[in-house]
Design a protein around this nucleic acid. Structure first.
Lengths: 136, 136
DNA sequence: CGAAAGATGTAATAACATTACATTATCTTT
DNA sequence: AAAGATAATGTAATGTTATTACATCTTTCG
């Protein structure tokens, strides 16, 4: 069995279940929501979901939204090439847009270098109201 | 009773207790840590801390670190003038550096404007290892 | 085969946060 | 000062998110 992405690691059963659930969702899901959606597939305990989420995050297939305690599937094929992905979260509809901005990440890396801060991960989350919700 | 900052609102008893605890701390504290530190002062329930934290955040005196589920007192006098404050969190020592970068916030506001995203709050958190810990 | 590494299953518990409701304090207007 | 409005407080219970501990099973690879 092969996947569409060349360098996607083979996923185990639980990892696939969780990843597919996130891919099929239109909004971020909490670990417990994922668990509820996967009860019928045999998942029974939070740890089964958290373990899968950990692996998926390591593989760059899933992002955690810190300000929501929730998770989304990565929508960008070249996501891992961008060290600083940003998320715009609509507080009305809950939709999340993911975007990468090179000048943003450059700026952050420059700061880190100047301060001798060994940067390992960057979290950028924007809260607000998206265009469609503002119009409605 | 006056405070040193001109436009600092008068704080209530619980708000002062929480704020002083955070000001005295050298690292971020969780709400429950704050509660533990204030048991002797008469605080007994999480809600007492969370309510104070809410008010302090509204007043711009305290920041919540989303990736840590913890809180710190704002160290910048003109913090509220900067819509996008960033935090650099050392994963070894737990110390947090707060900094404002105008070009960063400009870039974010430009994106939001282009996308018609009505930005209300920005979270920027950097994880890594600080200079002193890297040297040790 | 047999050891090592990784993945899974399950239960229990820890850590973080909110809802609901009753009460008390402060401020404002008369 | 009295009455009503607003804000703050106290307390209990509960809801939500995440981890620890331990046993088992599977795969890999010498």
């Amino acid at each position: 069995m092969t996947t569409s992405l060349a360098d996607t690691p083979e996923l185990t059963k639980n990892q696939s279940l969780v990843f597919d659930t996130l891919t099929g969702a239109t909004r971020p899901l909490s670990a417990y929501s994922i668990l509820d959606l996967l009860r019928d597939e045999g998942l029974r305990a939070p740890l089964q979901v958290y373990r899968a989420l950990d692996k998926l995050q390591e593989a760059g297939l899933v992002h955690r939204l810190e300000s929501l305690n929730a998770f989304i599937a990565c929508r960008q094929s070249d996501c891992c090439a961008h060290p600083s992905v940003a998320f715009a979260i609509c507080e009305i509809c809950g939709q999340v847009r993911e975007y990468s901005d090179d000048s943003l990440s450059k700026r952050i890396r420059a700061w880190a270098k100047a301060e001798n801060f060994a940067l390992s991960k960057t979290t950028i989350e924007l809260r607000g109201v998206c265009q469609s919700c503002a119009e409605a």
